[in-house]
């Protein structure tokens, strides 16, 4: 561990990021623009944002694949800029695309990974058996990865990542290509790992997966625009959300606008109106009474994470 250039509080954290920025060569704007956040040990943190929001670039800097243009990040107290090899030793990284060799068997892939992390043959043998048992892959250990289903390959990937017993797991869109049942299984495995004290960081664009995280970092245009537990983020607005979709949405919004209160916030776009209010029941009835103007879908409820994103950025989460 590098003690010289980090504070004591950073050592207590799994990940600390300060003023981190990155601009791709030839680009005119920053992909990541001076972000700062901390991730405590032993929790599942979701990095959430639409495509192009900067989450993958952040992921690549944290996993030491990119050298930050500005700022600094510490993994387990080790600077990713000054000592990337040592930072990697604490990390287990699962990429959006698999990093397995399709021509090798499940067992052979794990063996190579173990050797890259400096494990002895005996350690690799015992950990491989343990992990393949955990992920239900023991019977498939001799099969080549190219013959496995997407779900089994994902499990192999996770087993491989855990072989070196990392304290911090970085997972980039880990459930890409998995069917719904395999996704549920995967998240169950993550919860088991978290209860074992492992810190997990998941980059995702799926709101339903974000709901399963302990903490969320909302990314937009290369910046962190929100950070907190999903319930905290939802509660921060303290409001209800009404959303009407259909050809009459614009007309209804124009009728409501003059009578809305100071604390009500109306947003209109073609085919859709959204109202954040503390008087959900009242406005729900109003809109319903106007639904003959053309409303295909009317929603009223507590803010979802998509609503939180809209509040934070002024844009739909897509």
């Amino acid at each position: 561990m590098e003690i010289g250039n980090v504070s004591g509080s950073q050592l207590a954290l799994a990940i600390a990021v300060e003023g981190l920025g990155y601009r791709y060569p030839g680009a005119s704007t920053d992909a990541v623009n001076e972000i700062s956040f901390v991730i405590p040990r032993g929790c599942v943190t979701g990095i959430l944002g639409p495509n192009g929001s900067g989450k993958s670039t952040t992921f690549r800097m944290l996993s030491t694949q990119l050298v930050p243009s500005r700022g600094e990040a510490w993994i387990d107290g080790v600077s990713v800029r000054n000592n990337p090899a040592a930072a990697r030793a604490s990390l287990g990284v699962t990429f959006q695309s698999p990093s397995l060799d399709p021509w090798l068997s499940v067992e052979e892939n794990l063996e190579i990974h173990g050797r890259l992390f400096g494990l002895s043959r005996a350690e690799i043998r015992s950990r491989t058996t343990e992990l393949l048992k955990l992920f239900g892959l023991l019977a498939r250990r001799k099969e080549r990865v190219r013959t496995l289903s997407g779900g089994l390959a994902r499990r192999t990937e996770l087993a491989k990542t855990l072989l070196s017993a990392p304290q911090i797991l970085l997972l980039d869109e880990p459930t890409t290509g998995l069917d719904p049942a395999a996704r549920v299984d995967f998240w169950n495995e993550l919860r088991k790992l978290r209860s074992g004290g492992i810190t997990i960081v998941v980059a995702t664009h799926l709101l339903e997966e974000a709901e399963l995280c302990d903490e969320l970092l909302f990314f937009s245009e290369g910046k962190v625009v929100g950070h907190g537990a999903p319930d905290e983020l939802r509660a921060a607005g303290g409001r209800e959300v009404l959303q009407a979709e259909g050809s009459g949405a614009l007309g209804i919004a124009e009728k409501l606008r003059p009578v809305l209160g100071m604390s009500d916030h109306l947003h209109v776009e073609p085919g859709r109106m959204r109202l954040e209010t503390n008087e959900g029941a009242r406005w729900f009835e109003q809109i319903r009474s106007l639904s003959t103007m053309g409303v295909d879908n009317l929603r009223w409820g507590k803010p979802t994470l998509a609503d939180v994103y809209f509040r934070l950025t002024g844009r739909e989460y897509r």
Partner: peptide, 17 residues
């Protein structure tokens, strides 16, 4: 393309290997 390379490059092993 298969992703194996990024697995190697994010391990503590020097790229020289």
């Amino acid at each position: 393309h298969e992703g194996f390379l990024q697995g190697v490059l994010t391990s503590p092993t020097p790229p020289m290997a």
